[in-house]
């Protein structure tokens, strides 16, 4: 038996117990059939959670995570020209990402911090502080391409699916009012991972390498991300939060190809 199948069965058994615990008074046949159907449906959803969320679930979670990101990072910087520019560069890059099932959107956070984030479902955020230190489109493209790869490679989605507890929850998200608490729990966990703990270093290095290649194939200078990181490394870290959710810049530079700046 495949491990995924086994995991789905195991989660299905756990779920069945949960459903039974939630509806102890159910006794009539109609309800029993309904309950069995719900269990079967939920088991299928949990199985899907073990192998990846549906697009609809990913977008629902991503939208809510985006609200959390904006709320925690000082709101959106409502500069129409800058927002137009990040959407222009970002969507040109995203045209050449593998995932064309997403409606890619790019925004600026009204924060002095130096950081960028991506939410499941195709939303990318860059702080005003970072945006303002990037001198041209090449460096901006390098940063955006890194974040696009996080979404393209489903890093947050896989993180949810790999968490058995959250995987089970997401299979149940928002299908009734009682499940909403669980949906919010998933959203908060994903937002925490994106904004507080960050991805593990290997995931970040993968986004660096993929972002480098994406910028290159699109025609932006492949050294854009490297140049951005070099610039960021000169910023006084005492005054501002600088890439707090990413591995040390020196390690990232060591792994990136030694391309010239744009």
């Amino acid at each position: 038996m495949k491990p995924v199948t086994l995991l789905a069965l195991l989660l299905g058994c756990m779920l069945a117990q949960t459903v039974q615990a939630q509806f102890p008074g159910i006794g009539d046949i109609g309800s029993a059939i309904s309950k069995a159907k719900k269990t079967a449906d939920d088991t299928a959803r949990v199985a899907k959670g073990a192998s990846g969320l549906s697009l609809e679930e990913e977008i629902a979670i991503g939208d809510a995570v985006s609200v959390a990101i904006v709320a925690r990072y000082g709101g959106v910087w409502r500069d129409a020209a800058a927002t137009h520019r990040v959407n222009l560069i970002g969507r040109i890059l995203a045209q050449y990402a593998t995932r064309q099932d997403l409606d890619w959107r790019f925004g600026l956070l009204n924060s002095d911090a130096i950081n960028a984030f991506s939410a499941p479902g195709g939303r990318v955020f860059i702080t005003r502080g970072l945006y303002q230190v990037l001198p041209n489109d090449g460096e901006l493209a390098g940063v955006l391409a890194h974040e696009i790869i996080h979404i393209d490679q489903r890093h947050a989605v896989n993180s949810i699916a790999n968490n058995e507890m959250l995987g089970g929850f997401t299979g149940l998200l928002a299908d009734n009012s009682g499940a909403f608490g669980q949906f919010a729990q998933v959203v908060d966990a994903v937002a925490d991972e994106i904004l507080v703990t960050g991805y593990d270093p290997d995931t970040e290095f993968e986004a660096d390498a993929g972002g480098h290649d994406l910028a290159d194939v699109t025609g932006f200078a492949p050294g854009g991300l490297r140049a951005a990181l070099v610039l960021i490394s000169t910023i006084n870290v005492q005054q501002q939060e600088v890439l707090s959710t990413h591995p040390p810049i020196a390690e990232r530079l060591q792994r990136l190809p030694d391309d010239p700046p744009p």
Binding site: A60, D63, A64, V67, A68, A71, L173, F180, F183, A184
Partner: peptide
Amino acid sequence: TPAAEQYAQNQGA
């Protein structure tokens, strides 16, 4: 999405 709107409402966001 409606779920995200409800999340925002519940969080006072």
